[in-house]
Design a protein around this nucleic acid. Structure first.
Lengths: 334, 334
DNA sequence: ATGAAAGCGCTAACAG
DNA sequence: CTGTTAGCGCTTTCAT
């Protein structure tokens, strides 16, 4: 492992000039620069990060808070963040919290420690008050989910618009009794999707009925999707279409419909959300909304690093989603 | 951000002693230690990592090379590694390579740089020769997949034994014409599972027939699973059971069987491998083998950090798998 | 049991 | 355009 003084000696100059060449912080004569480059190449020199960071008091690390990465939806966001950050010279530390508050605060210590220069949060409850506080001291960006306090910037899709688009589509294909399967969590996305659902109905002159709205468990699990869907389709006035706020819940809904002796999409249309990999491995293939996971990650990282460098100009961003029409929806037949 | 000299001043002693208290590197009088602890608590002091690492010439970081984390199977391994490493005082940098050789070597530079003290690899081809070379210079552990050169330790399940157990089960339930759906990759796991399949047949006195063995694409994708299974079941002498080396391939096989007008498990039994989350969301729920992802990660991290500290005693480890009997297999009826 | 001081590798302020 | 030098925060001899 060569160090800067080895390069200086080899090039016959001082370490300061070598540093200048490496960092481009001052003009160096072309000949000197060339000699330095040659020496660097010869020794395959790379500056020691610890020395540099100690000196600059910057970690060039960002934290990514994620509840788990088993969910492929988080996985692509994280990939987008990691690749982008590295391109910009930042490392990434994944804070996989598994909903463990202790682990979460251990990770937050990394910010206090100077271990990291900023953080991206992927699962902030809408009522969260801790993040705005933390954001006063450290650069923070929220991705996908965000709190109502709009002092902390976020990157996400337009959940309200996406939900509205889904329900408008169902209405346009003749459905009038449309159910909604949500989740009992406190994510803004769940709320916005419910609002979008309601808004589409109202604009179409269809009354919003609480009996057509059901909620699955906080963690969107398959079984609770079955349960919630069953509540809706077992009623006398069964919906002819169901909008579910996640694909797993939609797959649960399909199961519920099939178990009730009806079929998808002939009797009941089902729409999911997320476009998980296996959404197209099921039969029928799921109509759903896909989120640009990688881009969401990329934008978040770009935004955070701008904030860290104090180059921040723009605030919250909304990225486009895609409505994906597959086989779990059909035109309504009376 | 307080520093060690602040603590020293507060406690009325030298920085050296503070350091000794923090690191337990020498005996310090109880009274002094108590004063130091009090000062640390008062200032909520945490040693600066860059100063410490610069001094100790150790990064306390490990690298985890993973092709992607969209695959939930990798996700749980990574979680196991991360949690274990952090408990032992090590950070983790995910090297998500997406099969990009450039990115891969960028990440390997992090080892040369002193950015990381060691690495865990999750997807080594069995013929790989680069890893044994790299392992001469840096602490390295392989997880799940490994190269034939046994100079580099690994942690994995017994793929041969697991495959044998699956096929023995099928044989014990009356099946005699058993097919195998593998992959054209060069992973040792694929090879071992094929060997286990063959060995079980041979021990049962059943001839191994090449016409009952088919291969899906390198990336185990769903469509190629359908294709490979179709090759086997479209034959005059169709197998009555299929052992697939991954769940996604098994789900493809189920689709192929259904599309051929037969059903699973009544006509053909199907077994997968991995126990992905959605294996039990399909109908029929998949009989499969589950790997202890989290434990595989944990053991790899433990082993690597031992190697880094030169405490390495044990070599390669095999962890127990679990055969999970669900609904995609049935007793053979002639 | 404790303190003084060197120095890990680097950058930046200052001087020329 | 370049060199000298201080010092980032910490650990670790070497003294005492």
């Amino acid at each position: 492992m060569s160090k800067i003084s080895d390069i200086a000696k080899e090039a016959g100059i001082s370490v300061a000039t070598v540093s200048r060449v490496i960092n481009g912080t001052a003009t160096v004569s072309p000949e000197t620069a060339a000699r330095v480059q040659a020496a660097i190449a010869k020794f395959n020199y790379q500056p020691n990060v610890w020395g540099r960071r100690l000196r600059q008091q910057a970690s060039r690390m960002i934290l990514v808070f994620v509840p788990n990465i088993r969910n492929p939806y988080y996985a692509s966001i994280v990939t987008g963040i990691e690749e982008t950050a590295r391109k910009l010279g930042y490392g990434t530390t994944l804070c996989i919290t598994n909903d463990d508050k202790t682990r979460e605060s251990e990770f937050k210590d990394l910010l206090q420690n100077g271990h990291a220069d900023g953080a991206i949060f992927l699962y902030i409850d809408k009522q969260n008050t801790e993040i705005p506080k933390l954001a006063k001291t450290f650069p923070i960006v929220q991705c996908c989910e965000y709190c109502q306090d709009d002092s902390v910037p976020h990157v996400s899709i337009d959940n309200f618009g996406a939900a509205k688009q889904v329900v408008n589509y169902l209405i346009s294909t003749g459905h009038k009794t449309i159910g909604f399967v949500g989740s009992q969590n406190h994510y803004i996305s769940s709320e916005e999707r419910l609002n979008g659902y309601k808004s589409a109905l109202i604009e179409a002159g269809i009354k919003v009925e609480e009996s057509l709205i059901a909620f699955a468990d906080v963690d969107y699990n398959f079984k609770s999707g079955i349960r919630a869907a069953r509540e809706l389709i077992d009623q006398v006035k069964s919906p002819t279409a169901l909008f579910c706020i996640s694909d797993v819940l939609a797959l649960g809904a399909i199961r519920a419909v099939e178990e009730s002796g009806r079929s998808v999409p002939q009797d009941i249309s089902i729409v999911g959300f997320d476009d998980v990999e296996y959404a197209s491995m099921f039969k029928p293939m799921l109509t759903t909304v896909s989120q640009p996971g990688y881009s969401l990650g990329k934008s978040s990282a770009d935004m955070l690093i701008k904030k860290i460098k104090n180059e921040m100009t723009d605030s919250s961003t909304f990225l486009p989603h895609k409505f994906i029409l597959r086989d779990s929806t059909a035109i309504f037949k009376a």
